[in-house]
């Protein structure tokens, strides 16, 4: 039963989505069901966020409580979560939900600090702490791609040489300085790169990979629906 029931649920859920794709939502019950099911998914999605908060609080407070190695970082995580979350859910005015109770205790002038509007604590933390930290991590890609390119782009054989030359041409084409340089060899060179490399070779390869991946995904979905593939639920 532990194996059969999840497979039956997976089969029925998958079948509903497939069948409803072919039915008219204006005239059939199932045609609308697809949208209904997706709305449920939306609600479950909301709860999952809550599950995430519960999990991260549980995991981090355990480490802090046991004073494990690096517990200060876990404490910083916990403080950060509450510093972001609490001010954003507190009532903004006395007319907001629970506002009449909250502003009996605290001055109403504090309202501008709460919620997510510009000037609020959440907005301030987000703009001046969270955003720069995320941008910094993303910016590190530039450093990493430089070292990866230095190490990997070696003309070891004909294919690698072709890859190397293409990469260099595209890198030049993507910068104004490079475009000006390429024009020295012919006015149409940047245009050729766009036509033959990006819209030609690149588009063809992307299509091939996407078609293959889509078929793989469809095949895997079918295997899951029919209960042939069950590893994802912990069954052999």
């Amino acid at each position: 039963m532990r194996t059969t029931l999840p497979v039956i649920i997976a089969f029925i859920s998958g079948l509903i989505m497939v069948v409803s794709f072919f039915l008219n939502p204006q005239t059939t019950f199932l045609g609308n069901t697809e949208e209904e099911v997706l709305q449920w998914a939306s609600i479950i999605g909301g709860f999952t966020l809550l599950l995430g908060v519960v999990s991260i609080v549980r995991v981090n407070s355990k480490t802090v409580g046991q004073r494990k190695k690096g517990w200060l970082f876990n404490l910083a995580t916990l403080i950060s979560i509450f510093a972001m979350a609490i001010p954003s859910i507190l009532p903004v005015t006395s007319q907001s939900n629970f506002g009449s109770i909250f502003y009996k205790v605290f001055p109403e002038s504090w309202g501008s600090l709460f919620g997510t509007a510009p000037g609020s604590i959440y907005d301030w933390l987000f703009n001046y702490l969270d955003s720069p930290m995320m941008a910094t991590m993303f910016a590190m890609l530039a450093f990493y791609i430089a070292s990866a390119a230095y190490r990997a782009f070696r003309a070891r054989n004909a294919e690698a040489t072709l890859l190397l030359l293409t990469a260099v041409l595209v890198m030049l084409w993507r910068i104004p300085m490079g475009e000006a340089f390429l024009r020295l060899f012919g006015d149409n060179i940047p245009g050729y790169i766009n036509t033959y490399i990006m819209n030609g070779a690149n588009a063809a390869v992307q299509r091939g990979i996407v078609i293959g991946a889509a078929l793989g995904a469809a095949s895997m979905s079918l295997r899951i629906m029919l209960g042939i593939e069950r590893t994802y639920m912990g069954k052999g």
């Binding site: 530039a142 791609i145 430089a146 390119a149 230095y150 190490r151 782009f153 070696r154 003309a155 070891r156 190397l164 990469a167 260099v168 890198m171 030049l172 993507r174 910068i175 104004p176 300085m177 490079g178």
Partner: peptide
């Protein structure tokens, strides 16, 4: 930002060339 992007692209191309010379 195009100036910075241009220079970094050129730098990477330079590194790729240098890497290949040392490789050979």
């Amino acid at each position: 930002g195009m100036d910075a992007q241009s220079l970094v692209h050129l730098l990477i191309i330079g590194f790729v060339i240098l890497g290949n010379i040392s490789y050979f």
